[in-house]
Design a protein around this nucleic acid. Structure first.
Lengths: 332, 332
DNA sequence: ATGGTCCCTGAAAACGGTTACTGCAACGTT
DNA sequence: AACGTTGCAGTAACCGTTTTCAGGGACCAT
């Protein structure tokens, strides 16, 4: 394993041609006579020659790969997002770099260092500071994924306002009065917007909104914790609006585990419409966002080159309210 | 955005030193006098200079990143696996390339092409053909992840034999006679070994095993389909052994949705012990494998260099039987 | 003073590709 | 027959680093 790979010059020597010809044949550019092409192709085939990406990168002054930065791989949302991104990038013949920031102290520095490895970086909202993103974009094209566009930095995101429609549905159509919100608005742009849409819907319906959200993360386990905080006391909310499906499913498990009826005792809603949401009993009312498309669109933007004249600077993808049983609606 | 980055030579010119000195300072090697170091450091700081990875890669003859190849990002297993891999690689200061093969026709060729981009590749079992892996290892270090070691190619995997213990538990301790197996043994080495351990346990207990497994994929939706195939007919099995937790959870949902009692009417078991398995009602009996560790171990092997004298050639990680309610055991 | 170490620094040669430029046939035109 | 095209192949420069090697001071011991 790990035999030294042959170089253009060696292939050229073997085929008794110049390196220029080998290069032309291997990348299919320029004029090469049929017999030359044939000869070189045979040698390439025979020795399994593949041009080294590092030499090529240097000559072409591009790495041939792009990166995606996200908080961590927990749950179906990020899986789907990255799938969408990855597929699109591989399709375009480029490489995919990933980096999860978790809550590493060195996250910002690590992301900055990434800039010297790739041709473009997609940064998921809520992973690194705005200053870092600005700094980053000084050396490499950047796209904000599920975040707000910045000066010269385009964004790809979903329309979070649908959670306003959802809240309105709970308040007006179902007549619920006491709602709770699970999610940390400071954690990411998405959650900020969802919390604000939740508040706005309360104002529109002239119903008092909760003073504070239940500030927790976006994982299922956070939902289970939220259930503990919300459902045990006497002042249980009539409906729990969760920032995403994962937490909603956690709350659902917590509610059912306490012997509560959903939606009879408490209604629960989510955001994303992950596969599990249509499988659980009762089906989860949620907002569908095109997660895969978010990733794919981001990839396309990054690859086609950011910031050209007339380039997309803010792609807001449509979302859709999905009514199932958990809000109190009965399926047809 | 995208300002041209400065090169060593430019930095050298500005700081009025040679490129060699800049390089020595920026990477902290060799002897440099304090005042020189100070001067260069200031210029580097001032202009935000970062050595280009492509120049560096060429000079050092290593890309500084490794890749992981897997079928797709569906479900918690792959998320966890990749997290483990990614964390370890980033820790070591290298970059992480990913590639999902899905069932692309070009998968083998794509993986082969990866070899010119990275210093090492972890290939998940069941993604590309053995010949491709062999070919790959001729040019770049390879580690099989959740697969069998090949000549000169080390493997990192979990001990699948625990599913034999599990099967024995169902046959002997619970006395179930009619078992079914959900999973496609041809799909991946892991499933092959689990099916074989399942069969071996039947032989040991002198109980007739099912002739065929229910050949389906490893996603939750496959479990839901399996439930349809297994639970509707008259000859319903007493217990369903699934190749992983995802499908087990799908079967569980299908069973509960049909009004069947689990484990009363049908027992269900999985493999992996994903977080969800301890949250569902009833809790899922399964085999715990250290998924994150698998990824991390693979990364370490890849980074420390494959195939040196005395290097690990086959790391089999321990697994553990986790008895919960879904097999018929009552929790203490 | 002389020679020998030690430190530092810089010039230049890699590393593996791509490509602008040059040169040379062969061919067609007047 | 002289000349301009055209098509194809090769030479060499370049991409941005790292690193070997050599040279030049400063210092010390004789």
């Amino acid at each position: 394993m790990g035999n030294r790979r042959l170089t253009v010059r060696e292939i050229a020597k073997i085929a008794e041609v110049s390196v220029a010809t080998v290069s032309r044949v291997s990348r299919g550019t320029g004029q090469v006579s049929p017999e030359m092409r044939e000869r070189v192709l045979r040698v390439i085939e025979e020795h399994g020659y593949q041009p080294s990406q590092m030499g090529r990168a240097l000559a072409e002054r591009k790495h041939g790969s792009v990166a995606i930065v996200f908080p961590g791989l927990s749950g179906p949302y990020f899986s789907e997002l990255i799938q969408g991104f990855e597929s699109e990038v591989v399709e375009a013949g480029a490489g995919v770099h990933i980096m999860a920031t978790h809550n590493r102290a060195t996250a910002d520095a690590d992301v900055l260092a990434l800039a010297s490895r790739v041709d473009g970086i997609a940064v998921h909202g809520g992973t690194v500071s705005t200053e870092t993103v600005q700094q980053l974009s000084a050396t490499v094209p950047v796209v904000m994924l599920a975040g707000w566009p910045l000066d010269g930095i385009p964004a790809v995101r979903a329309d979070n306002s649908a959670i306003g429609k959802l809240t309105r549905h709970l308040l007006v159509d179902h007549g619920y009065r006491k709602l709770a919100f699970v999610g940390n608005p400071g954690g990411s742009p998405d959650v900020t917007e969802r919390w604000e849409a939740f508040l706005a819907a309360h104002r529109d319906a002239r119903v008092a909104a909760p003073r504070n959200p239940v500030r927790l993360g976006l994982q299922q386990s956070d939902g289970v914790i939220a259930a503990g905080e919300l459902l045990d006391g006497r002042s249980r909310p009539r409906a729990v609006v969760c920032a995403n499906d994962e937490t909603a499913l956690g709350v659902l498990i917590g509610a059912l585990g306490r012997g509560l009826s959903v939606p009879g005792d408490v209604a629960i809603t989510g955001f994303d419409d992950v596969p599990m949401s249509s499988l659980v009993q009762p089906g989860l009312t949620t907002v569908r966002q095109p997660i895969r498309e978010l990733g794919a669109t981001t990839a396309r933007l990054l690859i086609s080159g950011v910031g050209g004249r007339g380039a997309v600077m803010d792609a807001v993808l449509a979302t859709e309210l999905v009514l199932r049983d958990s809000c109190g609606c009965v399926r047809a």
